[in-house]
Simulated assay, not measured.
Amino acid sequence: MTRFAALMLAAVLLSGTAAQAATLKPAATVADGQILLGDLFDGLEPDVATRAVMVAPVPGRRASLDAPTLSRIAASNGIDWRASGGADRIVVERASVQVTNEAIVDGLRLALRDAGVGGQADVLLDNRTLSLFLPAGNDASVRVENLAYDAVRGRVTAEIIAPATGPEVVRQNIGARVMDMVELPVLARRMAMGEVIGDGDITYLRQPRDRVQAGAVVEASEMIGKTLRRAVAPNQAVNVRDVREPVVVGKGQAVTILLQSSTMSLTASGKALSDGGMGELVRIVNTSSNRVIEAVVAGPNLVTVNPSNPVIAPVSQVSGPSKKAAR
Rank of each mutant, 00 (worst) to 15 (best):
L24C: 02
E45W: 05
L36F: 05
L184S: 02
S76Q: 14
D199I: 12
V217T: 07
M8Q: 13
A111I: 06
D201K: 02
A216G: 07
A28C: 02
G198I: 06
N306V: 08
G175Q: 04
V99H: 03
R72S: 15
S131Q: 14
L70V: 03
D242P: 09
V144N: 08
Q236R: 14
G276A: 01
D80T: 05
L124D: 15
V97Y: 04
L302P: 03
G279H: 00
V303S: 10
V196A: 08
P135C: 05
F4T: 15
P185F: 04
G116M: 01
A115E: 14
A326M: 09
R230G: 03
Y149H: 14
V123G: 01
A268E: 05
R51T: 11
Q207R: 14
V170W: 02
M223L: 13
V240S: 14
M278R: 02
P246I: 01
R206E: 15
I104C: 12
A231G: 06
P57W: 05
S265Y: 04
L273S: 00
D126R: 10
A5E: 15
T129D: 13
P310H: 03
D180T: 10
A325F: 14
T29N: 08
E183H: 01
V315M: 04
A148W: 07
T165Q: 10
I312L: 13
A148C: 10
D150W: 08
N301D: 07
L110V: 15
L44E: 01
G154I: 07
I104M: 12
G137V: 09
A6P: 10
M278Y: 02
N239S: 15
A63H: 09
S265G: 09
S76C: 11
